[in-house]
């Protein structure tokens, strides 16, 4: 992969989070944690730095407990396809939006 085709992650995340409003952010361990922290800490961020595969499920738990609050997904979803299976039962519109967001990334 050439340098030109690389995604400037820090800039991309900064741009996404600039419009976050009340979005809750759960990061996967590793790069997404660093990227979100680099934008500047926020009380609506929850950073995973381990427990690989838990970003999707933590997000689902939040969605179920706080269905009125917006949220944004993670990019460790491939580790946790099963987690999406657990969460994909359509009980909660925000949970669906959260999952859609995961898929779109």
């Amino acid at each position: 992969m050439g340098e030109d085709s690389k995604l400037p992650r820090r800039a991309a995340i900064a741009r996404i989070l600039a419009e976050r409003q009340d979005t809750l952010v759960v990061t996967g361990l590793g790069s997404s944690t660093y990227d979100c922290a680099a934008v500047g800490d926020h009380s609506f961020n929850f950073y995973l730095w381990g427990a690989m595969g838990s970003a999707v499920t933590v997000g689902l738990g939040l969605a179920l407990a706080q269905p009125k609050t917006a949220r944004l997904g993670n990019h460790w979803r491939r580790r946790n396809v099963d987690g999406l299976g657990s969460s994909r039962d359509g009980r909660c519109e925000k949970a669906r939006q959260f999952i859609d967001c995961c898929y779109r990334q």
């Binding site: 759960v26 929850f46 427990a51 595969g53 838990s54 970003a55 999707v56 499920t57 933590v58 997000g59 689902l60 738990g61 939040l62 969605a63 179920l64 407990a65 706080q66 946790n80 099963d82 987690g83 299976g85 657990s86």
Partner: peptide
């Protein structure tokens, strides 16, 4: 679908 997902969901619920 696997037990450890429950730990994540309950962590998120607690945060909520």
């Amino acid at each position: 679908t696997t037990e450890e997902e429950g730990i994540g969901i309950l962590a998120g619920a607690w945060l909520g």
